[in-house]
């Protein structure tokens, strides 16, 4: 095994081009487990922690450019207003020690369906900035996950940052685990209201071979909200609408039975989380709506 220590992003890209099998390591929270347990013996290990750019974030007008290695603890602490869904998801990641070390880039690189960040990214809307010596490109998050632990990266590409749409409305995130802390998701759900476009977006984790959106559920809810004038009147969402939305979210799942839970439970739990997060976000939207009205 060789240990590569690129001092700059350019060096990292060059090294990755030269050794496409090199395994990038930043927080180490996935890679080191595999090495410690003899599941993986990469020829090259490439340390990205010396590249300062990866630990920085920038808040723009419409998006946040989040360096791939910004640790979850920083997201929780500093980006809650801009990225509330991702901040909530970050808080559910493993333990304080892991949140101090792990970042979204690792979640994306591993592309495990159980990665905690994915549902929040899917719901918020995001693009993954990847680069190789051949050039840079942005992959829409919807196209990023290509299979179980597979993503759209070419062998010579590295993840540099994620551009996440700034929240224009309430976002929520829930994850079911069989322990009250330090637990891998049995399944997870992210929901974002986008009042500016009058749409909702969802993200589901650990309930299909890849992280997914519940598109039929989104379409249904978008139509129902539009039809009922909910975005304008700020009324409580009809229980039957919430129920149907939850059922469609559950139906979007394609889960398996494994040691962490049954497929049937996962489908059920995604439905419950969909209903609850819809209630929470909508209540929050209504609260904001009423405040705005009061101020007007």
């Amino acid at each position: 095994m060789d240990f590569l220590r690129p001092a700059s992003w350019e060096e990292a890209l060059a090294a990755k081009a030269e050794h496409p099998t090199a395994v990038p390591i930043a927080g180490g929270t996935d890679v080191m487990v595999e090495i410690n347990f003899d599941h993986r013996r990469p020829e090259y290990l490439m340390d990205l922690t010396r590249i300062g750019d990866l630990h920085a974030w920038e808040v723009g007008d419409d998006t946040v450019r989040l360096g791939a290695s910004v640790p979850y603890a920083e997201i929780m602490e500093h980006l809650r207003p801009e990225l509330p869904g991702l901040a909530l998801a970050s808080h559910t990641v493993a333990s304080p020690q892991i949140r101090n070390r792990g970042g979204v880039g690792g979640n994306l690189g591993t592309a495990s369906p159980a990665g905690d960040a994915h549902p929040a990214l899917l719901a918020a809307g995001a693009e993954v900035e990847v680069e190789s010596v051949r050039g840079s490109r942005r992959i829409p998050i919807d196209d990023f996950y290509t299979g179980v632990k597979r993503n759209a990266l070419a062998p010579d590409e590295l993840i540099r940052a994620v551009h996440i749409d700034k929240a224009d409305g309430p976002q929520q995130y829930s994850k079911v685990g069989t322990r009250n802390a330090m637990v891998i998701a049995v399944c997870a759900f992210g929901l974002a209201l986008h009042p500016e476009t009058r749409t909702v977006r969802t993200g589901i984790g650990s309930a299909a071979p890849t992280p997914i959106r519940a598109r039929a559920a989104e379409d249904f809810l978008n139509a129902a909200l539009e039809e009922g004038g909910f975005w304008d009147n700020g009324k409580i969402i009809t229980p039957s609408v919430a129920k149907r939305f939850a059922a469609l979210c559950a139906a979007a799942c394609n889960p398996i039975d494994d040691v962490r839970g049954t497929a049937s439970y996962r489908r059920h739990a995604v439905g419950v989380m969909a209903r609850r997060t819809l209630t929470w976000t909508w209540e929050s939207y209504r609260g904001a709506h009423r405040t705005t009205e009061g101020a007007a």
Binding site: F3, R5, I25, T29, D47, S95, Q97
Partner: peptide, 15 residues
């Protein structure tokens, strides 16, 4: 300064 699991830090990363 930051608490981390030292089992998940590659030795070379501590340089």
């Amino acid at each position: 300064g930051v608490p981390v699991c030292s089992c998940l830090v590659a030795a070379g990363q501590a340089e």
